[in-house]
């Protein structure tokens, strides 16, 4: 058990980080190269100013007509996204691991807060799941992979929460948690979770077209 723990919290972490960063970089570069080859004009029309203008509106809660039209969804998705990015980075348990291996540390969120936020994330995932099953327009677009992605994202939070509360089998759960976290990181470049990497480019491009060429807002 100890060996397994050491393995998943040692080499496998490396593997997942390499896959995440390497894979994301690979996806970015291959997109850029392909665009250079097949959609050159994208480079011509991409505008920093208008791209950022659009991105800014879209990453601000209620910053767009669409976000204002669906307040519940907007609140859920923004909380969800902020949490999935900040919890792993600012969780004391994680920082301790960094401290032990690299002797680096930084500010962390209190454990009680994280505990609550973890529940919020899990609840958001349930919200997305229910929405996917209940809303016809979302159901129509859904394939098995959408559930898998949702599960990949929910797993580290469910297992981490379990471990923290030291429920039955928490030692094994701790190991599962770490593996789940690693799977999530590693799958970002190779699933639709790639939207995290591509968002600035797709939105930025539409913002550039609308702003610089068409003199209109796209939010």
């Amino acid at each position: 058990m100890h060996d397994i723990y050491n393995f998943v919290s040692g080499p496998l972490v490396w593997v997942s980080f390499v896959i995440f960063f390497g894979g994301s970089l690979y996806r970015l570069i291959s997109m850029a190269v392909l665009a250079r080859k097949k959609d050159v004009f994208v480079y011509e029309y991409m505008s920093l100013k208008f791209g950022l203008r659009s991105i800014l509106h879209w990453i601000i809660p209620f910053g767009t007509v669409k976000w204002r039209k669906n307040p519940l969804f907007t609140i859920v998705t923004f909380t969800f996204h902020v949490c999935i990015i900040f919890i792993p980075i600012f969780l004391s348990a994680h920082i301790i691991l960094w401290k032990e291996s690299w002797d680096i540390s930084w500010w962390y969120i209190s454990d009680t807060t994280v505990d609550i936020l973890a529940v919020v994330v899990i609840a958001s995932c349930i919200f997305f799941l229910v929405r996917r099953i209940v809303l016809p327009e979302v159901k129509y677009l859904t394939s098995v992979s959408d559930y898998v992605i949702l599960a990949i994202v929910a797993a580290p939070f469910i297992t981490g929460f379990w471990t923290y509360h030291q429920w039955a089998g928490f030692r094994v759960m701790g190991i599962i948690h770490i593996i789940a976290g690693e799977i999530m990181l590693a799958s970002i470049p190779f699933t639709r979770l790639i939207h995290m990497i591509f968002f600035p480019f797709t939105r930025g491009y539409m913002g550039s077209e609308f702003g610089a060429i068409r003199h209109a807002k796209d939010w």
Binding site: L34, A35, L141, D146, R192, I194
Partner: peptide, 18 residues
């Protein structure tokens, strides 16, 4: 005739129906 735009649009869409 197609390239990065088609690929990126298809792979980025999270099937959210928004």
């Amino acid at each position: 005739e197609t390239g990065a735009r088609l690929k990126t649009y298809v792979e980025t869409c999270v099937h959210c129906g928004l």
